[in-house]
Simulated assay, not measured.
Amino acid sequence: MIKNYSDTLFDEMKLLAKFPEKSQLEGIKIHHDASPSIITAAKSLFDKGLITQTDGGYLTDSGFETVDHLHRVLATLS
């Protein structure tokens, strides 16, 4: 069975990949004039408890762990 993934999921993954993977003391800011898909992705990541603010902020502990896994997958596929 082939699983269909939403574009929003890929936007969330792209946004998570932008977070620094070495430190939880660095975050990102999503500006109000960012693309709607990025704004939606940030809100979704916040709702899932992976980032601290709806407009970016810092990774939560769960977010930091998720980013670690994401970077491993991306390194394997690269």
Results as ranks from 00 to 15, higher is better:
K3D: 09
N4R: 12
Y5C: 10
Y5I: 13
S6Q: 09
S6R: 09
D7E: 10
D7C: 08
D7V: 08
D7A: 12
T8E: 15
L9F: 08
L9A: 07
L9C: 06
F10D: 07
D11N: 14
D11W: 04
E12N: 05
E12H: 02
M13I: 15
K14E: 00
L15N: 02
L16I: 01
L16M: 02
A17R: 05
A17V: 01
K18E: 11
P20Y: 08
P20H: 06
P20W: 06
S23T: 15
Q24P: 07
L25C: 11
E26I: 02
E26P: 03
G27Y: 07
G27I: 06
I28K: 12
I28H: 05
K29C: 09
I30P: 05
H31D: 05
H32N: 12
D33G: 03
D33F: 03
A34Q: 02
S35Q: 10
P36F: 06
S37G: 07
I38S: 11
I39V: 14
I39R: 15
A41E: 03
A41I: 00
K43T: 04
K43S: 06
S44N: 14
S44W: 05
L45F: 00
L45M: 00
F46G: 08
F46A: 11
D47K: 06
D47L: 07
D47I: 04
D47P: 01
K48S: 14
K48A: 14
L50Q: 06
L50P: 01
L50A: 01
I51N: 04
I51D: 01
I51Y: 07
T52Y: 07
Q53S: 13
D55F: 14
G57T: 02
G57M: 03
Y58C: 00
Y58N: 01
L59D: 04
L59R: 02
D61I: 02
D61T: 06
G63Q: 12
G63H: 08
G63P: 05
F64H: 13
E65H: 12
V67F: 07
D68P: 02
H69M: 11
L70W: 00
L70Y: 00
L70N: 00
L70Q: 00
H71R: 11
H71D: 12
V73E: 14
A75P: 01
L77T: 10
L77M: 13
L77A: 15
L77P: 06
S78W: 12
